[in-house]
Every structure is written in C-alpha cells, then in structure tokens.
C-alpha cells in the first residue's frame, strides 16, 4: 500500500474526528463539558440523511444535519446553563436520547430498524476511487476547521471571552461579560460543528445506519483532552488517532496479529493519551461548573 493511499485513508477517517473535536474544544474552553459530541454527531448524521432523502440534495442534507445538531445542543445548553444540571448526566442523557430518537424516526420514515435507503451524498459513490473523496466539500472544511477555530479562540474578542468564561466566569461577569450568553453560543457552535462530523459520515456512506457514529464522539473528546484543549494540538491528535485506525485496518487485512488485538489499537492509544502520558493536561478551570 502506498504512502499516499495511507495518508488519504487517514484523512478520510480523521474528518469526522476533526469536526467533533472542534466542537468539543469550543464548548469545553467555554467551561461546558462535551460528553455530548457522540449524540451531536449521530443526530447530525440522521438529520443529513433525512434532508437529503426528501430533497435529493446533499447540500440541503448538510443544512438539516446541522439543524439537528443545533437542536440537540440547545437542549444541552438549556439544561446545563439555564438549569445548571450536572453536565455529565445531561451529556449521557442526550447521547442515549439521540440513539432512541434516531431509531424512532428511522422506523417512522424508512420503516427499517437498521438503515436508511441510499441518499444523495458527497464525494462519489462508495467504493469509487480513493481520490474521489477529495470532491467532497466537507473534506476541505474538515481540513481547515481546526486552524479556523484556533484563530477564533486566540484572535477574536469572542475567543477571548470564551477563554475567560471557561477559566474564571466570576471574573468575566465582574467586567460585564455576559457569561451565559457566551456559553450558549459556544455550546450551539459545538453542536453545529460536531453535527458536521456526523453529516460527513452519513453523506460519505450515502445512508444512515443505526448508531453509525460508533463511539467516534468519545474518541474526539479524547483528542481534545490529548490536545490539551488547544484546537491545533487537538487536530493533530485527531490525525494521530485516524492514522492508528488506518494502520489497524491495514494490519487486519494482513492477518499478522490476531485481529482483536489490532482492533484495540485506536482505543488503547486513546486511553494512553487521556491517562496523561503526554504530560499533565489542565482542563479549563471552570469546566463543568455553572455559577450564579
């Protein structure tokens, strides 16, 4: 297998991670725990297939996918910010809720408990040449999402305020920064970004399958932690995880090592990363805490 093919495959796997991790980095920098990335992705994937199915347009699918992400993020924001619920509990609830609601609508819309019919998507048909995926606009968006987020966080007043409310919300409030409004925007942004990860998955495969995100949201969250909440480093972590996954697929095909062990690689890498092997990572000081 050529190096180019390996890189292409890595990028293809990394795109959903990049979107979801961007969402995670944004919300967590503002002090809101992002256990919900998985749910946002799954909702985004289903929303995209619905939109694409009924209109025949992948672009409209993209919009409806993001709308689903925003809707779920709004639930998260209202519970966590307005009602100060425990953000981890809310996160778990939203993830389970999304699995259920997508299953429900899958049955309702497509009369199937496992998958939707084929819909219009991006980047050529499944099984077409590996280079075809470069025609997918989401790939290009995914490539720039982390640098763009870094620029927003580091260079704009909004980013400065996001960092302030994530570290010391009382201090931000004391100078008149509307803490809750900044957090709402960050959480909604995180919903839209993570949903794009799901949109990519669904429109790349041209269909929705039940629970198709398969834990990618959690791996993206691990990438955020691995990257110490910095968008650029989190982006590199996404690429690293994706490379491990590509390697796993290749090794599995080669049948050198029992496939079960090979399949563990990305997850072991995640555990190693999150356990702090790369040095201590300090989360935003106010992560998970709401204030009056």
């Amino acid at each position: 297998m050529s190096l180019l093919l390996f890189l292409a495959q890595t990028l293809r796997i990394a795109i959903p991670y990049l979107f979801a991790a961007a969402g995670g980095a944004l919300a967590e920098r503002a002090g809101v725990v992002s256990l919900t990335l998985e749910g946002f992705m799954l909702g985004g994937a289903f929303g995209a297939v619905l939109g694409s199915h009924y209109t025949g347009s992948a672009w409209i699918g993209l919009v409806t996918g993001v709308a689903w992400g925003l809707m779920l993020a709004l639930i998260h924001a209202v519970c966590s910010i307005r009602y100060k619920a425990d953000q981890i509990v809310v996160g778990v609830a939203i993830n389970l809720f999304t699995v259920g609601i997508t299953r429900f609508f899958l049955q309702l819309a497509f009369e199937s408990s496992s998958n939707s019919p084929r819909v219009a998507g991006f980047g050529g048909d499944a099984g077409s040449s590996a280079a075809a995926f470069l025609t997918n606009p989401l790939v290009w968006m995914g490539i720039v999402v982390m640098p763009a987020l870094w620029w927003v966080v580091q260079k704009t007043t909004f980013g400065l305020r996001v960092r302030a409310v994530g570290e010391h919300p009382q201090a931000a409030a004391s100078v008149g920064v509307p803490v809750n409004r900044v957090r709402y925007v960050a959480v909604l942004g995180s919903g839209a970004l993570a949903a794009l990860g799901g949109v990519y998955l669904a429109l790349d495969q041209h269909q929705f399958t039940d629970s198709m995100t398969a834990g990618r949201g959690f791996i993206a969250l691990a990438a955020v932690i691995f990257g110490r909440w910095d968008p650029l480093r989190a982006g590199l972590a996404c690429l690293l995880f994706a490379a491990a996954e590509t390697l796993q697929i290749q090794l599995q095909a080669a049948q050198l090592i029992p496939s079960q062990f090979v399949a563990m690689i990305p997850y072991v890498l995640t555990i190693v990363a999150v356990a702090g092997v790369v040095g201590r990572s300090t989360p935003p000081a106010a992560l998970g805490r709401t204030t009056d």
Partner: peptide
C-alpha cells in the same frame, strides 16, 4: 474584589481589556 477577579490563563493586558476589547477589522 477581595478575591481577585482575574483570569489566570490570560495575560495582564487581556485581563484589563476583557469585556471592552479594542477591535480592528473585527478581530481583537
């Protein structure tokens, strides 16, 4: 305030201007 209302991970200048940041072409 008695307990300082400063964001430790931001610079002195960033803390001072927070909430009233000077802007040029839309960016901080």
């Amino acid at each position: 305030h008695q307990h300082f209302m400063l964001v430790p991970t931001l610079t002195v200048a960033e803390n001072v201007v927070l909430g009233r940041e000077p802007v040029s072409v839309g960016t901080f």
